[in-house]
Amino acid sequence: MSQTRFTKDHEWIKVDGNVGTVGITEFAQGQLGDIVFVEVPPAGKAVKAGGEAAVVESVKAASEVYSPVSGTVKEGNSALPDAPETVNSDPRGKGWFFKIELSDVKELDGLMDQAAYDKFVAELS
């Protein structure tokens, strides 16, 4: 059974067992506008929850993508650097950034579920 959680920095993580797939939310891609550059982490990179893991840039803004959880990167989405617009068109699908092996599944408890995140975003605008 997979579950999806969200951060206040507008990342999502979809977890199956102890492997999660991370990306940015629909709201985040909308705020950035046309995405022109993406840098994904290499496999094997160790990251901490809240630590910088990837980079996403539009013409006028640059932003770090923070890892929602601690663990080891299993794979960066190698298709993204050549097609960064995928993050705009399919942020929750083909626009994923990296897959991570979680070192502590309990960290997910500190993140928001879909309902809580929707409420969080509604309050922002």
Partner: peptide, 14 residues
């Protein structure tokens, strides 16, 4: 002008 995200007016201390 392009790739301005490298520059100070966008990236600031980075």
């Amino acid at each position: 002008l392009t790739l301005s995200t490298r520059e100070q007016h966008i990236r600031r201390e980075k």
